[in-house]
Design a protein around this nucleic acid. Structure first.
Lengths: 135, 135
DNA sequence: CCGCATCCTTAGCGATACTG
DNA sequence: CAGTATCGCTAAGGATGCGG
């Protein structure tokens, strides 16, 4: 039994790390997860494990390079697992780790917000643009 | 009284827009708000209006260009307001709009997650790196 | 099927200098 | 104080072709 629980350790970490500071590791982590492809990959994995080709199809417009790069970075950060089935042809499945599952709902909320508030943002843009460019 | 409430309109929008589609406007919006500087600006404004110089000081390492660019984009999208006090020297205050206040807590949660889970991510990276580069 | 390696173009971004 | 304008670099990222 640890002298401090996991929740307590996270509280301490939150006090120690500050993304407002340029050199803080949390700033870099924030930069990593504040990424379009990261958002789409994590939310795509919400319903369960997915194959590489599934993700590629689901996330329209992503290049092989970006998908692989994103998956590798998320694997390295411990947010998802990569399991290879050595069949012919090979099959690769990606799944969220427990850590990834703690982040996923937060990311998912951002994606949902973008989808549900799109009309308001579009309206604001029109107002802004017409106000500054009345001709 | 509208035939549909604001909440109902957002539900419809959520069905209409899908960030998984490459050409969907929600995809572009997601890309905009999935940004390090956006996160830091919005969370900085959580406690109330801030002056340009305040934000500049609070968000360490941000260049004038990126700060101005981020603020303009957020203003255009209707997430914050820009108010100029024509004194000498001029004073400019930024504040969240109601729309911005709906997004802020979600963004803030991401920033908090990055700060509190940094140790676990760091550990995962070490494991990943030592496993692939043992020699 | 699932990548990695390479080339190449674009644009993000920082640094610097100047203005109301 | 709160920007705008310009330059120049670097790195993101798409396209293509090859490999296990």
């Amino acid at each position: 039994m640890p002298t401090r629980t996991a929740a307590q350790l996270r509280e301490e970490a939150a006090r120690e790390y500050d993304a407002f500071l340029a050199t803080c590791p949390a700033r870099q982590l924030l930069d990593r997860i504040s990424d379009k492809w990261v958002t789409l990959v994590l939310t795509a994995l919400a319903d369960g494990p997915q194959r590489y080709s599934d993700l590629s199809r689901r996330i329209a417009g992503v290049s092989q390079k970006m998908l692989t790069q994103t998956l590798r970075s998320l694997e390295r950060d411990g947010l998802l697992t990569r399991s290879v089935t050595p069949s012919v042809p090979v099959r690769v499945d990606y799944d969220l780790t427990p850590l990834g599952r703690t982040l996923m709902p937060l990311i998912s909320a951002i994606k949902s917000w973008a989808e549900s508030h799109m009309p308001e943002v579009a309206a604001a843009r029109t107002t802004y643009d017409t106000a500054s460019t009345p001709a």
